[in-house]
């Protein structure tokens, strides 16, 4: 597949936004159970929500560049019963709305008690909004991943590892951003978030390696023989029916050399996982190094998502192997 840059930015940016929100709410839960010092509502949770919204908004903005008719984008919420893309289109704004409400409630210190649980603990509205936001964040990871995982003949994508990778990679980058944010807004929680970022990066490395190993062993179900229905092991294309290119030759081939494909795989593993892990563990939690780790990991994520698309081999390519 040809990696579309709008979608690469969409999936990586909203992943950071989702991960950052999950990090904020995780922090709030830890603080609620007195495992972390309490953070300031406005300068930590509300400001963090604004940063998450900025990333989510940037991702949403990038997605419009993927559309031929962005002015009709509102129509894409229609087929949520069958289409994961349609579900994503609904869940993304719903999640952004929930992050906004969560931030708003923190900004105005609306700590209205909703219910009381055992031990006299009060569950206030921000905890409820955060829980709803968490559900939506995971739903959004699922929708984004399933857009690719549901296409059964794109065998590289058709695996539960696809949504798992999206979730873990988004989580890792979001928690890493949260550690930078807390370095300024709540320095005593910085190591907490950096620890989570290390754990999530390690988990993401595991699941992404699993999908790389899986995809290396894929045997394509479609061959030229099934594509044109002639039982013969030696079939070559002589002409694809036109002298020039077409949508089919532009949209489904990444167009890069085999050397580039070989180089980008260790490249993104190094940038997304290895270097951030080294930087995080060496300069344990100094803000400057955290920023370096975050930027390195984001560049790695762009390469990772590029490779995710380029690696997928669409069966239609069987019909477009030779221009003549």
């Amino acid at each position: 597949m040809k990696p579309p840059f709008s979608v690469i930015f969409l999936t990586t940016l909203i992943g950071i936004g989702q991960g950052l929100f999950l990090a904020l709410y995780t922090g709030q839960l830890y603080a609620y159970f007195d495992l972390l010092p309490a953070h300031d509502s406005r300068s930590f949770y509300a400001a963090g929500s604004i940063i998450a919204l900025l990333f989510l908004g940037a991702g949403l903005f990038a997605s419009f560049f993927h559309l031929g008719h962005p002015e009709r984008a509102w129509r894409s919420a229609a087929m949520w019963r069958t289409s994961w893309l349609s579900r994503e289109v609904i869940v993304l704004p719903a999640f952004m709305g929930m992050v906004f409400l969560y931030g708003l409630a923190h900004w105005f210190n609306w700590h209205i008690t909703v219910i009381e649980i055992a031990g006299g603990r009060k569950v206030d509205i921000t905890l409820i909004l955060g829980a709803l936001g968490t559900i939506l964040a995971f739903a959004l990871f699922l929708c984004t991943g399933m857009i690719y995982a549901c296409l059964r003949f794109l065998q590289e994508w058709h695996t539960p590892l696809t949504p798992i990778n999206f979730t873990l990679l988004g989580g890792a980058s979001g928690f890493l951003l949260a550690s930078i944010f807390s370095a300024f807004a709540a320095p005593n929680s910085m190591s907490f978030y950096a620890g989570w970022a290390i754990a999530l990066t390690l988990l993401a490395l595991l699941s992404r390696s699993a999908s790389l190993l899986r995809n290396k062993r894929i045997k394509p179900k479609s061959t030229l023989s099934t594509a044109i229905g002639i039982k013969h092991p030696h079939i070559v294309q002589i002409s694809q029916g036109s002298m020039g290119g077409s949508f089919n030759t532009r949209a489904f081939f990444h167009g890069m050399s085999a050397q580039f494909m070989r180089a980008i795989k260790p490249g993104f593993i190094l940038l997304t996982f290895v270097l951030p892990l080294i930087i995080l563990s060496i300069g344990l939690f100094t803000p400057k190094l955290l920023i370096a780790a975050f930027i390195t990991q984001y560049i790695g994520l762009l390469a990772e998502r590029w490779f995710f698309f380029a690696e997928a081999n669409h069966p239609q390519n069987l019909y477009y192997q030779k221009i003549a």
Partner: peptide, 10 residues
């Protein structure tokens, strides 16, 4: 109605 998202072609 088509928004040109190319998803169907994938």
């Amino acid at each position: 109605k088509c928004i040109g998202c190319e998803y169907c072609s994938w």
